[in-house]
Amino acid sequence: MSVNSSAAAPHREWLTRWGRVRGVSGRLVGLFVLVIATATLLIPIFWMVSTSLKTPFHVFDLPIQWLPSHPVWSNYPDAYKMVNFTHYFINSAIVTGSVTVLNVVISTLAGYGLAKYRFFGRQVLLVLILATLMLPLEVIMIPLYLTVQKLGWLNTYEGLIVPVTANAIGVLIMRQYFLSLPDDLLAAARVDGAGHIRTFFRIAVPLGWPAILTVAVLVFQATWDDFVWPFLIISDTSKATVPLAVQSFESAETSNFPMLMAVSAIAAMPLTILFFVFQRQFIRGVATTGIRQ
């Protein structure tokens, strides 16, 4: 190839130029496809917001009104009041906050223990813990319900918090992170006279922040979003979370579409804001584990 290169120079030059043109046009086609695909995926969300600003009479107007001519902004305060969102936001915040803090602490401890210590049966333990990630709630929802009932936790915060905290996804992430942490650092701390607990808090936790944040965001999102478990054990509105409020509003107001969409948009807001602040953690959480919940 290199032997003929000088002889075939004009030909080659033409080829590279053609290649460049093709590269640019190929990239343009790619961009075009990407724009179309993104727009298609976002239509439902756009339509939700657009409908939430209409009056019930103009929901099915033809031709399609992509933007309401007179946006009814008052739909939002009305929807907020009708559902009494403050109450449910507080419940969701209590439950999600507790689960996130508890799970992050317990997962960090477990991930550290499994990554940095050798002990008899560690491998078996690890497999058992990771196996729970493949066990969907739907498989064990009946015995779990009976267990929680026996504990007297139906319609309580404990029932919403403690069983949900038993989630090993954080152990997986923290363990992987701590495995990449050089042992010398920990050994140095220990030589300096720090005990095991002190080494953990002084060295491992400060260095583990990126992974801890990923776990926190992942667990927060999953818990805030959880519908099935609260739906099973909560029948009393005083302990109900936001998803339950949306569901009961939906079954009561099936055809008041602007209100339904406004309620949906309000319910979607916290996670959307969280996503824009912590995009990296959101995406990394899904990408590195591939297994959620």
């Binding site: 317990i106 477990a110 550290y112 038993a166």
Partner: peptide, 24 residues
């Protein structure tokens, strides 16, 4: 120490994953 660090999570998993699985 490794087991000690993992103990809280193990307890929770035993109670709300392994036990319900066996119970199921």
């Amino acid at each position: 120490w490794g087991v000690l660090f993992a103990l809280p999570m193990l307890g929770l998993l035993a109670m709300f994953k392994f036990w319900p699985m066996a119970y199921a």
